[in-house]
């Protein structure tokens, strides 16, 4: 298809311990599949003291391995401690360090300097993209909720603005972020004094309906989809629309293998159907979803030929 489309490994959303993170990123560094890796705590600043050294170490060896390293910011910085962490990260931008803003506070701190905008900031139209570009954004990752016609319109505007557009193609879908921690609440705790219970669930806490249907995952203050976003047959249309990078969000499966599926798909080594089959096999019993890009419920699975 094209070698120009880059693969980005998005930030790890789960509360994995430092050692597990380092092992994970060493495997990513040792393989040439991913072009860029986004690091940094997005969900909860309470995790940062335990993992920030590992993040900095990973940043170093990933950069040495030739990866572009991007630091992401908190999705919902509210308290003084969270704001201090936000200011620290935004302060690094410009010294050859790329920073991705996930809300307006980060955009304020990065205003006028080159920066990226992450998928937690609401970009639903080209007018929004124009504002971001005028203030220094060089690259954006679109939110999960958009359907194809919006992706096409925004990507087209991005081309005119000289701004690269990335789209999430794989991983649990972040559906909400809260000041309250439902993970702690499920353990009878509050966010203060949470005992870091989110670390007990390597892929978030499963949330089912009262009729036993799998539905959501709670990851600290974040609510994720239980189904995993899998865009495969849609990739040619995204590339044709001018999307310049695909974002793959880490799950507890072989993420090097997942990246290779997308690289092979972009290289024309496999087709969309074959890629989808391999990704489903890697996911085991996790359900796949692609509804948002087809203008349907995000949890849904739409057959691509029916909408192409």
């Amino acid at each position: 298809m094209t070698r120009d489309v880059r693969l980005t490994l998005g930030p790890l959303l789960y509360n994995w311990p430092a050692g597990q993170r380092l092992d994970f990123y060493r495997a990513i560094a040792a393989d040439d599949t991913y072009d860029a890796v986004v690091l940094g705590e997005v969900v909860c600043a309470k995790r940062s003291p335990f993992v920030s050294d590992a993040t900095l170490e990973a940043a170093q060896f990933l950069a040495q391995a030739g990866k572009e390293v991007v630091f992401s910011t908190l999705a919902l910085p509210v308290t003084p401690r969270e704001r201090a962490e936000l200011a620290d990260i935004c302060g690094m931008a410009g010294d050859g360090v790329a920073v991705e803003a996930n809300e307006a506070g980060a955009l304020y701190l990065l205003d006028g300097r080159p920066h990226r905008v992450g998928p937690y900031f609401n970009i639903y139209n080209a007018d929004t993209l124009r504002v971001l570009a005028r203030r220094g954004a060089t690259s954006v990752c679109l939110p999960w909720e958009l359907e194809m016609s919006s992706v096409e319109a925004i990507t087209g505007a991005g081309r005119d603005l000289g701004l690269t557009v990335e789209v999430p193609v794989f991983g649990s879908i972040p559906l909400a972020i809260s000041a309250r921690c439902a993970h702690a609440r499920a353990h009878g705790l509050a966010k203060d004094g949470c005992q870091y219970v989110c670390g007990q669930d390597a892929e978030g806490m499963a949330v089912g309906t009262l009729d036993g249907q799998t539905f959501l995952r709670v990851n600290g203050t974040q609510t994720l989809s239980d189904a995993v976003l899998v865009l495969a047959e849609e990739i040619p249309a995204l590339v044709a629309a001018g999307v310049s990078a695909l974002r793959i969000t880490p799950e507890g499966v072989d993420m090097v293998a997942v990246g290779r599926v997308y690289r092979d798909l972009l290289d024309g080594v496999v087709d969309g159907a074959m890629a989808e089959g391999t990704l489903r096999a890697l996911l085991g019993d996790r359900r796949a979803a692609n509804g948002y890009l087809h203008g349907a419920a995000g949890a849904g699975w739409e057959r691509v030929n029916a909408t192409a």
């Binding site: 909400a176 609510t223 203008g295």
Partner: peptide, 20 residues
Amino acid sequence: VMAEGRCTLSSYATGRSPNR
């Protein structure tokens, strides 16, 4: 309960959301 304007629980289940 969720940060407003940053919640797509509704569209995940139904296809329609507060934002859109």
